[in-house]
Design a protein around this nucleic acid. Structure first.
Length: 265
DNA sequence: ATTATATCCTGATCGC
DNA sequence: TGCGATCAGGATATAA
């Protein structure tokens, strides 16, 4: 569930809790999280916690870092004390610090831990859509050589990193572009709209701490408020806020896409 | 070389 | 109410 805004929210909330803390223990309860190298971070100080693509990257002094991917149902929770910790279930891992602990809970168990010796290795291939790198020209270039429809294009993490199924629909609605359009067929003015909408929607979602459905909670167990802005996602049959036509649901790459055929062309 | 399909899991919801 | 089928926000290995 967590897309870029939700991961950004979690990273921002964890950072002040974790930065400067020293690792005292690491317990991985779910063997699925134990793929790849398993270094011992004991005694290391956390130097930063930030979002990298859709992952939360925890960096330790000396270069070691842990990239946590929440996938569908993963949650990172900061537990300042034992009482807060006792409330959590379905725990897959726990990192104990000199003060407090980081808990990882994940119902569907798709989430991943990956350890690196250097943070640069954790960088995803795609462009971060809310960074300076995401220029109109960069978008035009990427779209120009994509043979896919716009929905599939936006979900490609090797091009633009961070957009998932919810925000793909929302961005295309905002840009008044049909999810079925071929990415390479966009006119320049349409690319400009797509660029603008992508940044606008994601930034607004970050400002609202993401979207909360059933699973997503931030590091303090709170919830985001972006759902009040959702224009099409999960609104099949309801009226489009722009043109009153009914919102439609179609399936693209085995996933739901919501859009308005009245004003998305 | 791209792009579609199957798959990793669990739990909520749907339809009969 | 009970039960099996279906679906869910992600991403990747494999097949086509």
């Amino acid at each position: 569930m967590p897309e870029l805004p939700e991961v950004e929210t979690v990273a921002r909330q964890l950072a002040p809790c974790m930065t400067g803390r020293i690792v005292r223990s690491l317990r991985i309860f779910d063997p699925l999280l134990r793929k790849g190298p398993q270094p011992r971070p004991h005694g290391r100080k956390v130097t930063s916690v930030r979002r990298v693509g859709k992952q939360v990257l925890i960096e330790f002094a000396g270069g070691l870092c842990l990239a946590v991917h929440l996938r569908m149902t993963g949650r990172l929770i900061w537990a300042p004390n034992r009482r807060a910790e006792a409330r959590e279930d379905r725990l897959r891992a726990r990192v104990g610090f000199d003060r407090g602990a980081l808990l990882f809970a994940d119902t569907r168990r798709f989430g991943t831990f990956r350890w690196f010796r250097d943070a640069r290795e954790a960088e995803p291939a795609g462009i971060d859509p809310v960074s300076e790198e995401m220029t109109i020209e960069a978008l035009r270039e990427m779209a120009g050589r994509a043979r896919q429809n716009l929905k599939a294009f936006l979900l490609r993490q090797d091009r633009i990193v961070g957009i998932g199924n919810i925000y793909a629909s929302e961005i295309l609605w905002d840009a008044r572009l049909s999810p079925r359009r071929r990415a390479s067929a966009l006119r320049r003015a349409e690319i400009v709209r797509l660029h603008e909408s992508t940044r606008k929607i994601l930034i607004r979602a970050i400002e609202n701490c993401g979207t909360t459905f059933s699973d997503f909670q931030d590091a303090h167990g709170l919830t985001g408020s972006y759902q009040q802005y959702l224009a099409v996602y999960d609104r099949e049959g309801e009226r489009c806020r722009r043109c009153e036509a009914p919102v439609r649901r179609i399936v693209q790459q085995q996933r739901s896409t919501y859009f308005c055929a009245g004003c998305q062309k």
